[in-house]
Each structure stands twice: as C-alpha cells, then as structure tokens.
Design a protein around this nucleic acid. Structure first.
Length: 361
DNA sequence: TACCCGTGGCG
DNA sequence: TCGCCAAGGGT
C-alpha cells in the first residue's frame, strides 16, 4: 500500500534555501552551517540593526566600514560616539546609531564583551526589539525563535490569505511563524523565509512559479498574491518650511552645529537652521539667521522624511571667523568626515556646489 | 496604540 | 514623476 509522505513547509523551504540562498557578507552559508559553523554574533547584531527598514545594498558598504573601524564589539564600545555617528551618516534613522553605541557599551560592561545567547537577554539591550532579538537568537545561536520581519509578514499573509490588516494582524501571523519554525535548522529557516520574501515573494510581481510554497499558497490559489499583505491606510505627509544658513570664511571654513541628542536627526551635525514649521512664511527669510551678515539666497532644497516633506530656503554669506557659542568652524575639505545627514549635505551642496567632491589629495 | 524616526531605489 | 517600501525600535 502506498503511503503518503508529508513534506512540511519547513522542509520545502530549507531545500529551496540550500539551492537558492543569497550570499551576504554577514552570513554563514547553509553548507557551513550544517557543518556546525555559526556566524559571529557581533556581525549578526551589527547587520540586523543596520538592516532595520534599510535595504541590503545600502547596508553592505556601511557594514564593511564598521568592521574595519571596529573589528570587535569592545572596539565599538570604546569608540567616541561622534565617530560612530559620523560613520553612520547617510544610513538614516540615527537613533539606531545612538542605541548601537549604547548596546555595545552594555555588552562590553555588563556581559564581558559577549552577546547574550537568548531572545530574552538580547531583547533587554538598547535598539534590540522583538524582531532583532529573535533574529540574532535564531541566526547566531540557532535557537528556535519565531522571526518575523516585513518579508515574513508578506510570505505568511499570502500563504494563508490573511485579510486582516497590519499591524493588527501581526500577533496572529507571528503565531503562524512559530508553528512553522522547525527544531532543526531554525536559523537557516529564518534566513530562508526572509530570502524568499526578498527574491521570490516580492511586493510586486512575485515569482510564484519558482516558489517552494506554490502548491500550498492560498493567495496564489486566489490568483492575486499582490493583494497581500493588507495594510492600514496611511495618512498624508504635511509640508514644513524652514531656512538654512551656510556661512563661509575667506579661509574656506563652514559654520556647523551639533543637534540635540533626541528627536529628528538627533545627535547629528547641521548647518544653522530655523525651526521647521508648517507656517506658509515659516522661517524662509533671514530673520532667524545665526548672526547678521550679507545673506544671499541660493534657492531651495526639498527633502522627504518619514512623516513630512521639508522645503528649505538656502542662504549663503561670506563672513569673518566669528566666534560662536554653540558651533564650530570646519574646513570645507573636511565636511565628508562629519556626521552630516543627507538633508544637510543637500543644503550645503546647494550653497557650495563642490563641497563634497573628492579633493585631488 | 499611534506616532515619531531617513534614505535611496524602483515600477 | 511619485508613491511604495526595505531584516523595526522607542515612547
């Protein structure tokens, strides 16, 4: 009598992963993982924090730079926070960098420089939430943790055709992930779910014919996988206005300031700027310049943040090297080394077009 | 819970 | 061109 052999979702996915996994700088290949090799928890933690709401391609050069500058977590713990912010500049969500530094310090001081190897221990550290603690637990320590990120949400919502909108449906979806997560190779399973979401079960035009779940997927059976995941409606972005002031000395120095540690672009470097308000006339004139000077209009720059669009009027003035209470003068040739977020680089480039071009030396 | 928090690539 | 979205966390 013929016996039906039940192949689990996890087995199907892991077989797919063995053949189609992505090669990533922080990853141990499935072959090596089967041989018992584990990734460095420091590398996994660093990559996971960088990958929060950030694409793999954007992370790669930053990951390499951080490992060069700080090969071990204790090196990062000992580094000046200003150096960490400058190295993070351009990657966005700067609270991640502040928490990265705090987390490294906690691991060094409270854990002997060794990362906790449980989800609960990891979850207690700064910048490590539900997803990241589960991911490090599974990937670095091969524990059976239910890992759910945006990729997994998409895979699960399609596999079970979940109509309830995110984020409300998140707990139910995580329960499904927990059911699917195997006792064998849970770390590879977690990475495989994310690889599947990133390369096959994509937001638009998913490659369902190549998917190991095509026979099981309810969304595929309904012929409309793109309908999932269902998400709550998002609100529109308001416009905020402001002005920035690029002061340049005859010696080629620019006046910079450090933003407060909390809130938008917290702890990052800026050129003097007004408050950013929704007023039609809000701060677009020289009324709030850092000091009186022959301010000259240099057009505007627009920058879109997560929850508002910013339009900045750019002003430039040639000035003497005035002493200021809350700022410093930085040579234009050294701006690249500063912790300048992208919006500030845009504004400076508007006033000094060649500010961030590589010097001959 | 809902809001705050960057950036760049892509269809 | 522009809305979408990416390995989310903090409060």
């Amino acid at each position: 009598m013929l016996q039906t052999i039940h192949i689990t979702h996890a087995q199907k996915l892991l077989t797919w992963y063995d053949r189609h996994h992505r090669e990533l700088p922080w990853r141990v290949s499935p072959a090596a993982a089967k041989a018992g090799e584990r990734a460095d928890p420091y590398h996994i933690w660093l990559s996971e924090v960088m990958l929060q709401q950030t694409t793999v391609q954007a992370v790669k050069p930053y990951f390499a730079k951080f490992l060069t500058l700080w090969p071990k977590v204790t090196d990062l713990a000992a580094a000046p926070v200003e150096d960490v912010m400058a190295a993070w500049a351009g990657l966005g969500y700067y609270a991640r960098a502040r928490n990265l530094k705090k987390c490294a310090e906690a691991v060094a001081a409270e854990h002997g420089g060794v990362f906790p190897d449980t989800e609960e221990g990891l979850r207690a550290l700064p910048g490590i939430g539900d997803y990241t603690s589960a991911a490090i637990s599974a990937i670095a320590f091969n524990r059976q943790s239910a890992v759910m990120d945006g990729n997994v949400e998409r895979v699960i919502s399609r596999l079970y055709a979940i109509d309830a909108p995110l984020p409300g449906s998140k707990p139910a979806m995580k329960a499904r992930v927990a059911e699917l997560t195997p006792t064998e190779r849970p770390g590879d399973f977690a990475q495989a779910m994310m690889d599947l979401g990133a390369t096959i079960c994509t937001p638009k035009r998913p490659a369902c014919s190549l998917c190991p779940f095509c026979d099981d997927c309810l969304a595929f059976a309904e012929h409309d996988p793109e309908r999932f995941p269902v998400k709550a409606a998002k609100k529109e972005k308001p416009v905020r206005l402001g002005a920035v002031f690029v002061a340049v000395t005859p010696e080629g120095e620019v006046l910079l300031r450090r933003r407060v540690d909390s809130g938008l672009l917290g702890g990052m470097t800026e050129v003097p700027t007004t408050a950013w308000t929704s007023r039609i006339d809000g701060g677009t004139t020289t009324d709030h310049a850092p000091f009186p000077a022959a301010w000259e209009a240099f057009g505007t720059v627009t920058h879109v943040f997560t929850h508002f669009e910013l339009r900045l009027s750019v002003f430039r003035a040639k000035t003497a090297r005035i002493s200021t209470a809350d700022g410093w003068w930085e040579p234009v040739t050294n701006l690249e080394a500063q912790a300048l977020p992208t919006v500030m680089k845009k504004a400076i480039t508007q006033a000094i077009p060649r500010a961030f071009e590589k010097s001959p030396n």
